[in-house]
Design a protein around this nucleic acid. Structure first.
Length: 257
DNA sequence: ATGGTCGTTGCACGA
């Protein structure tokens, strides 16, 4: 089964790119972030015509997350699981697809270390850990994928000194990501590729993509049982080269069986 | 060189 995550930066603008990409890459499950759509504007019929069931958790204008699946889509949960303080923004949706409990997440950006949004980001990540622990145990097949807005270590940044004192690389952010790892999640892409300079996001400005100035902030986290089944993983940089690209590239992983 | 490009909505702001 092929799982993928893609921050599409407006599904309204990106739908043609997404449809092309689905036809070409044939993922079984796709997690999208930043759809920037209200639920009644989500193009579920277009995806149904391509063989995908879908769920969307949107708020319009900003944020918005979705899951597409052609291997079943059951027990959808919008927002965090019951019992966890709900998010006031649309940043997480979960469902069971092909026997795997999957979440599509859009972690808050943080903006700057002294900003309330940064504390919101850290709290959000703590709630994400609670969510995963509420829904599953580490021995289950679980995948949490999306735009984490955190570069796990300095290999994931083109120049760590350029981000010194900023978000995405700060130790508290890496620590809250580490709490998910401590619970039992593995960075599936990093399991297969240990070199530096493999990025999933490049700022639109200043020709950053062509200069190789990017970060790896789009992650596919999976429990040990999924890591054992993972046979292939890649960041599809080609999608970042096309017309009207998102500023993020899709990340995909293949699981055997 | 403290800029630049997108996407949203409106005549700025978030990423």
């Amino acid at each position: 089964m092929r799982f993928a995550t893609w921050n599409v930066n407006s599904l309204k603008v990106r739908l043609p790119r997404v449809e092309e990409w689905l036809a070409e890459v044939q993922p079984d499950v796709l997690a999208m972030q930043e759809t920037k759509l209200a639920d009644d504007a989500f193009p579920g019929l277009a995806f149904q015509a391509m063989g995908y069931d879908s769920v969307h958790h949107g708020q319009g204008q900003w944020n918005g997350v979705a899951l597409l699946s052609r291997v079943g889509l059951e027990r959808p949960v919008y927002n965090f699981a019951p019992g966890i303080t709900p998010d006031h923004e649309a940043r997480i949706v979960s469902a069971t697809c092909g026997g795997v409990r999957v979440s599509s997440v859009y972690v808050p950006n943080g903006r700057s270390l002294d900003n309330d949004h940064y504390r919101y980001k850290l709290d959000w990540m703590a709630r994400l850990r609670e969510h995963v622990a509420a829904e599953s145990t580490p021995s289950d097949d679980v995948i949490v994928m999306g735009d984490f807005n955190i570069a796990p270590d300095d290999r994931d940044v083109w120049d760590a000194s350029a981000y010194e004192g900023g978000t995405h690389i700060s130790q508290p952010e890496r620590d809250v990501l580490g709490a998910l790892v401590d619970w039992g999640m593995v960075d599936l892409f990093r399991e297969q590729h240990d070199e530096a300079g493999l990025f999933s996001w490049w700022d639109y400005r200043n020709g950053d993509f062509h200069k190789g100035h990017g970060m790896r902030i789009d992650l596919v986290l999976g429990t040990a049982s999924t890591a054992q089944r993972c046979s292939f993983s890649i960041i599809d940089r080609n999608a970042r080269k096309r017309q009207q690209p998102s500023d993020h590239a899709p990340v995909l992983v293949d699981l055997d069986g």
